[in-house]
């Protein structure tokens, strides 16, 4: 069951890459692993670590204060490719609660919503302005208010966003869809009966 998400204020990290696919977010060789205490090291693994296992300083999430980021501001097409929901688990395990991007891979977007990682779509210029702001002031915080569907960044940066109503309701209450759908079981049974 996901943690409820109402409002998060956190350090935001800029990710200056487009088309970040889920293979980069979580390389396939970690998919067989359980969600245990090792999970926080898997997210963006090959971008974060050299083949010898040393942290790459050039990767933004390795650098203080961005290593404490709770929000990631990316570019277009974040989370494209493989349907692996574990990519979302890996981001959550790193302490991220929200990704802001111009666009998302469809399945990633849906997986994020179901696990309490809020995917916020903002226009290109808004994403660029937020990335610039948190680059110029490392450690600057962004507030994502799901109830008001509003992002407040450093300075006067403020943007509205929308999340599908059903998912937003589930996120705010920390509910998952299975429980809600179970209340519709009579309709499902009727549908099955009608088709024979």
């Amino acid at each position: 069951m996901p943690e409820p998400f109402t409002l998060v204020t956190a350090i935001a990290a800029p990710l200056e890459m487009s088309n970040v696919d889920t293979d980069q977010i979580l390389p396939a060789r970690f998919l067989r692993r359980p969600r245990d205490e090792r999970y926080p090291t898997y997210g963006f693994h090959d971008l974060r670590f050299t083949p010898e296992g040393a942290p790459r300083e050039e990767f933004v999430l390795n650098r203080p204060p961005y290593d404490r980021a709770g929000i990631l501001v990316a570019q277009r097409n974040f989370g494209v490719g493989s349907s692996r929901e574990a990519a979302v688990y890996a981001l959550l395990a790193m302490g991220l609660r929200c990704v802001i991007a111009e666009s998302f891979g469809d399945i990633f977007f849906s997986n994020a919503l179901k696990n309490g990682l809020v995917p916020v779509r903002l226009p290109e210029a808004a994403c660029a302005a937020l990335r610039m702001a948190v680059t110029e002031t490392p450690g600057a915080e962004i507030t994502v208010d799901l109830e008001a569907q509003r992002v407040d960044g450093p300075g006067a940066l403020a943007y509205g966003f929308t999340i599908p109503a059903f998912s937003r309701d589930c996120l705010l209450r920390g509910l998952d869809e299975i429980g809600l759908t179970m209340t519709l079981l009579p309709e499902i049974a009727a549908f099955e009966a009608a088709r024979g």
């Binding site: 349907s83 692996r84 929901e85 574990a86 979302v88 399945i107 849906s110 997986n111 179901k114 696990n115 599908p164 059903f166 998952d176 869809e177 299975i178 759908t181 179970m182 519709l184 079981l185 499902i188 099955e192």
Partner: peptide, 19 residues
Amino acid sequence: GIGASEVAHVFATQTIWQS
């Protein structure tokens, strides 16, 4: 294609939410 939470949803209900 769907994610793991949706797979669980389909197993449990044989349905899926879509827009």
